[in-house]
Every structure is written in structure tokens, then in C-alpha cells.
Design a protein around this nucleic acid. Structure first.
Length: 602
RNA sequence: GGUCCCGUAGCUCAAUUGGAUAGAGCAACUGCCUUCUAAGCAGUAGGUUACGCGUUCGAAUCGCGUCGGGACCA
């Protein structure tokens, strides 16, 4: 807020004049006054009292007195238990509101052009190419996308990047099963989405594999030996070796099947509303990873065991010894990440690289940071792991190991179907054509899903309840969408008012008619842009989601018992329209940061 | 054995990062549709913030320990 910094300056001035204390304005705690107390802003004076050597009550009183007489924005004050509550002049609120109303970039921080040369990279999604996306990916994609958008809104130059794990034994398994059982079938011929098609053969491989293990066990082999010696797994391993050797036939099949998967992913990403500036492929960076390992050996920061495997000793960092390259020279996950991070730095000179990856990988990213530090790359400090926890469903724990994976495409479709069902039951959209209605169902269904997931702190394990998420009552995406659509409806009606021209011109004389409740609403609204910036620094879509809800609820309640178009009181009417415009703008912006669409009407 | 995350109303989640009397929604109960979207609004009830000790003007938040849930490393 503009006058917040004025008030802080005045407090610092008071400290200097009254107690000869020179204090930094950044140490002054200024917060919105709780609604049960009088005042607008509260100065927490305990730390100031300590410096001045007086009791908090006395200090608060004396500073309050000083502010009232010296600070143009301050109208009065009161002191409760050492909290100095400041009453801001109505004029100050109104002029602030007026400024914000006309500011085109309201709520956004203007990007510093110098950041172009040191962008923030946000890596998210990071799928494997052997199966479709699931519920966990949905949380990942939504967090990654919204964090990137929030960072953009706060003035960073952001590049969204994806990392596709397109090589390794798991891909070979799908390929092999397709060769054995596919009979030349394609996604087109089968009518399946590409990623689901390839996923089907991954499952197929597992069936074959399990059958062979059972046969071997029946003929006297131990379970462990059977897993190693099943013909099909050996064949898969041979296929991987052929791939690494660059066998043209293997590479061709690999390319074909991966492209099927990418076509499928593209559809899912589009439906989710996420996008990427660049996609990296592990097949293109794992060799560089091996070079990095070699470099580490030469520098003496890694070491080689007798069997030929390469390790890093991180006991000084409180971690462990960790393998970086297998004895047979093949790469492990971290080998590839060493390579990918290096490629990205060479390409972009990023200031930060934020990995949106599940919290089970925490150890992995600690090792990655530590390895880069030991190698002497100064950018190691820019590597961040944004960890998120698992998503459960009411029907039971969601884990791929237990075979209860919830498919992302199916889930999204179910949400849309549910939105259609509820809307039809309510019969609210008779005047809408079917194409628009379908778009609306998608907006509502996916809004419900996105909001429900994003409103929860990423670090917390959460429960996704589809039925609850799409409820139009309560703390949900559809409720916020509804409020937005309703505000838009009020504006449409207001625009028919003959006094609308006055409103467009922002005639300051209108402000004189504000009532107390409306003034509170201005305060509520003006809080949000700042909160968005703060939230961004903490990478928290959850904060923005919760504030959007708070705002929507406030406005929904307000408009419910106020007739907006009131010919008897044109000033009040127009003032409310101004509030509507601002409320709509803030809601739209915060929802955009979260990647949630808001419809003009519902 | 070691490391990390989580524990808040019956349920799902907040709490401006150490600030005032811990807030929302769902479920339950009361009111409110002839006017702008009732896909809603207003209200009642519901709490030893898992437990203990500590740090300080002040702790759901920080530290130590215990108990529970989960993940990871050899």
C-alpha cells in the first residue's frame, strides 16, 4: 500500500525525534488491524519499546500522538495491550483506491528487464513415457504452472520447462510387449489416446513377466532368481543395450512409440491448461551427465570404488555416500540430472532452477545440490526443490504400487461430467447454446479440480474429494467462479445506467458517498495485490487460492443485500459499480495466476 | 540405524511466517426466494492447536523430548 510506507517512515521519524533511536523502516511491523478492533493498520511496538527503554503502552501512545500530528494520512489512533491501532483518513483510502482503479497493471509487479539474462526456470510435470499421467501429476502440473505464473506476476523472467524421462528399461518394456503382442496396432487403429496405448503395453509386459516368473518358480527356481532370469526381462535389457548402442531399428521403434505418448500428453496438458517454454529429454542429456561425473573424478571430488562405480562422499554434509554411476558404466537418475542442470545453465544462465517434484525425492535433490557445489559450479545455490506431498482419494490411498492409480484424463472427464449433471439438474442455462454450455462445464469441472488441489499447502498430504470440490456452496472453485460471473452481471446491468459515463471518468466527487461497509470493502480489496506478491516469494498458490475465496465471499455477501442499480441514488450506484470492477479485476487476476478460468456468466 | 515432512472443530482445510479473543467450508440446527444469479445470504453450536518441558512481553508457529501418520537413505 502506498501510505503504508509513509506511515513506516513517520514511525521511524517518531523514534528519532522522541527517543533518539535510528531504526530501519524494514524492521517496523505494520499489519492490517483485526476486525474486532478500531483502526485500519496496526503497528506492533514491542520491539520499538525495547529499543526506547519504555513500556509498550507508553511508546504506543507517544508514537500514536506523533503520527496524528505529523503524518498526513493518519486520522487518529488507539492503543490496546501494546498494539498501536492507526485510523487512516478516508481521503487516503479513497485516493489510493482511485489510483489503483486506473492502474492497468494493478496487482502485478512490472518485470525488470535485466532478469531476462538471469531467468527463473521452473521444471514441472516430468513424466515417464511408458504410462499416462495420474492424479499425482495433476498436483504437480497445477503447482508448477501456478508457481511459474506467480513468479511472472512478481516481475521475474520465467521459463517453464519439462523434463521427459524418455529412455531406460521401462520404455523398453512397453516396446518389447508391443513387438510381441501388438500385431501392428496403433493408437489410430485402436482408438486409444497415445499415452494410454503405450501404457497398455507396459501393463502387458508385466503380465508376461509375471507369468514367466511363476513358471520358473514352479520348476524349482527361487523367486529372486526367477525375477532375474525370466526370458522377457533379459530381452528387455538386451533391447536397452541395443538402444544405447544406437541400433537403428530399436531407435526407430523407440521414436515412434514415444511420439505416440507425446501426442497423448499434449492433449492432457491442453485440457489441464498448462504449457512449457521448453521440453528437455533425458536421452539428450544423460551422456553429458556421464562427462560431469568424469570431471568430478578428475577434480577429485568424486571417487571410484574397486568395482568401477563412482560415488560421492557427503558425510560432511550430514548425508551419506551416494552412487553417481553404476559399475557397468550406465547412468542412474542423478547422472542425468547432473547433465540436465548443466545444459540448462549453459543455455540460460538461470538465477534459480526450481524443481517441482514429489517430496520423496528430497534426498535426491540434496545430493544434486551438494554435488554441484563440490564441483565448484557457483550456480548450485540457485537449485531449489519445491516438494509436494501425495494426494489421497476418499476411496483409499492413491499409490501406483498398489495398483489404484487414478488416471488424470479420466478424472478430468469425470469432473466435467459432474459439472454437466449438476447444471442440467438446476436448469439454469436454457438460453445458452450447446457449444457454450460444453465450454462452461469444462470451466467449472476443471476449476473445481484445480482450486481444490491448489488451496492446500503443497507440503501437506491431502485428500481430494471430487464431490466436495464441485459443490457450489462452500470453499470451492465453482463458488469463486460464480461470484465473478455474478459481479460481471451487475456490471453489465450498471452499464445500461445513464450515469455510467460519470463512472467511467472516475469522478472523485462520488467518493463522498461511501458508507462504512463499502469502505471496509475497499480495504479488503486493496489487501490482495500485496498478498499476491508476498505469496509469490513463498511459492504458495495455496495462499492466493485462499485469499481469492475470502474476497469472493466478502463480495458475494455484500451484493446479496444491496441493490446495485438504484435510480434514486446514482452516486451510490456508481460507486458500487466501481467496487465491482475492482473486485472482478482482482478475482480474475488471482484466478489467472492459479490457471483457473472464470466465465462471464454461469 | 540415520534423515526429512505432517499432526489444528466430527470431516476437509486456513491462520499475513513469532502478534491481539486460532478462522472458513462441509455435516447439524435457526431464519431468509415477487427485486440484481437461492449454484446464494445471515445466524447458532462445535477447540487443552497430539502430549510434556523450554525460549520471551507474546507460541499452532521456534528448540528439546515423547507418541502417532507418511516418505526417503545404506
Amino acid at each position: 500500500m502506498l501510505f503504508a510506507s509513509e506511515i513506516k517512515l513517520s514511525v521511524a521519524e517518531a523514534m528519532l525525534n522522541l527517543y533518539r533511536q535510528n531504526i530501519d523502516t524494514s524492521t517496523i511491523q505494520l499489519q492490517p488491524t483485526k476486525k474486532e478492533f478500531d483502526g485500519d493498520l496496526t503497528v506492533v511496538v514491542f520491539n520499538l519499546a525495547k529499543q526506547a527503554g519504555k513500556s509498550p503502552e507508553v511508546i504506543a501512545d507517544e508514537i500514536g500522538e506523533f503520527l496524528t500530528s505529523h503524518c498526513a494520512e493518519v486520522n487518529g489512533y488507539n492503543v490496546v495491550k501494546g498494539f498501536l491501532n492507526i485510523v487512516v483518513k478516508t481521503d487516503a483510502w479513497l485516493s489510493l483506491f482511485s489510483d489503483q482503479c486506473t492502474a492497468p497493471d494493478f496487482g502485478y509487479v512490472v518485470a525488470d528487464s535485466s532478469f531476462v539474462h538471469a531467468p527463473v526456470l521452473v521444471e514441472y510435470s516430468s513424466p515417464n513415457t511408458n504410462k499416462p499421467l495420474h492424479l499425482g501429476h495433476v498436483r504437480n502440473n497445477l503447482i508448477g504452472f501456478s508457481v511459474a505464473e506467480i513468479l511472472k506476476a512478481t516481475g521475474n523472467h520465467v521459463r517453464k520447462v519439462n523434463l521427459v524421462n524418455d529412455r531406460g528399461i521401462h520404455i523398453c518394456k512397453s516396446m518389447l510387449a508391443w513387438l510381441k503382442k501388438g500385431n501392428g496396432e496403433t493408437p489410430e487403429s485402436s482408438g486409444l489416446k497415445g499415452d494410454h496405448f503405450v501404457g497398455k503395453y507396459y501393463v502387458e509386459f508385466d503380465k508376461i513377466y509375471k507369468a514367466e516368473i511363476a513358471d520358473l518358480v514352479n520348476s524349482g527356481s527361487s523367486a529372486e532368481d526367477a525375477k532375474k532370469n525370466a526370458p522377457v526381462i533379459i530381452e528387455a535389457q538386451q533391447m536397452l543395450q541395443k538402444w544405447e548402442a544406437g541400433d537403428p531399428e530399436t531407435i526407430a521403434l523407440w521414436t515412434t512409440m514415444n511420439n505416440w505418448v507425446y501426442d497423448g500428453f499434449a492433449v492432457s496438458y491442453k485440457m489441464l491448461g498448462v504449457d512449457f517454454d521448453k521440453t528437455y529429454y533425458e536421452s539428450e542429456t544423460y551422456l553429458l551427465g556421464k562427462e560431469i561425473v568424469k570431471e568430478g573424478l578428475e577434480k577429485g571430488v568424486f571417487y571410484k570404488k574397486e568395482d568401477g562405480s563412482v560415488w560421492i562422499d557427503l558425510t560432511e554434509e550430514g548425508l551419506d555416500h551416494k552412487v553417481l554411476l553404476r559399475a557397468d558404466g550406465t547412468s542412474v537418475y542423478i547422472t542425468q540430472d547432473l547433465g540436465t542442470a548443466t545444459v540448462r545453465y549453459r543455455e540460460t544462465h538461470f538465477s534459480k532452477l526450481i524443481y517441482v517434484v514429489g517430496n520423496e525425492q528430497e534426498y535426491h535433490f540434496k545430493v544434486l545440490r551438494a554435488a554441484m557445489k563440490k564441483l565448484g559450479y557457483p550456480w548450485w545455490d540457485g537449485l531449489h526443490h519445491l516438494a509436494y506431498n501425495m494426494v489421497d482419494l476418499p476411496s483409499g490411498k492413491m499409490k501406483s504400487r498398489e495398483g489404484t492409480v487414478v488416471d488424470a484424463d479420466e478424472l478430468m472427464q469425470e469432473m466435467i461430467n459432474e459439472a454437466r449433471k449438476i447444471t442440467m439438474e438446476l436448469g439454469k442455462i436454457e438460453d445458452v447454446n450447446s457449444a457454450e454450455a460444453e465450454e462452461l462445464y469444462q470451466t467449472i469441472g476443471l476449476g473445481a479440480l484445480k482450486y481444490f488441489i491448489l488451496k492446500v499447502d503443497p507440503e501437506k498430504r491431502m485428500l481430494f474429494n471430487p464431490a466436495e470440490s464441485i459443490d457450489f456452496n462452500g470453499h470451492t472453485g465453482p463458488f469463486i467462479q460464480y461470484t465473478y460471473a455474478r459481479i460481471r452481471s451487475l456490471i453489465r446491468k450498471g452499464e445500461q445506467s445513464p450515469d455510467f459515463k460519470k463512472f467511467i471518468d472516475f469522478d472523485p466527487s462520488l467518493y463522498k458517498n461511501t458508507e462504512e461497509k463499502e469502505r471496509d470493502l475497499i480495504k479488503v480489496m486493496l489487501r490482495y495485490p500485496e498478498t499476491v506478491s508476498e505469496a509469490a516469494e513463498r511459492y504458495s498458490p495455496a495462499l492466493i487460492a485462499n485469499y481469492a475465496y475470502e474476497l469472493a465471499k466478502t463480495f458475494n455477501g455484500f451484493y446479496h443485500d444491496h441493490a446495485v442499480v438504484d435510480a434514486q441514488q446514482p452516486e451510490i450506484t456508481l460507486f458500487r459499480l466501481m467496487l465491482s470492477y475492482q473486485a472482478a479485476a482482482i478475482l480474475k487476476k488471482s484466478m489467472a495466476l492459479l490457471g483457473i478460468k472464470v466465465p462471464e456468466r454461469m
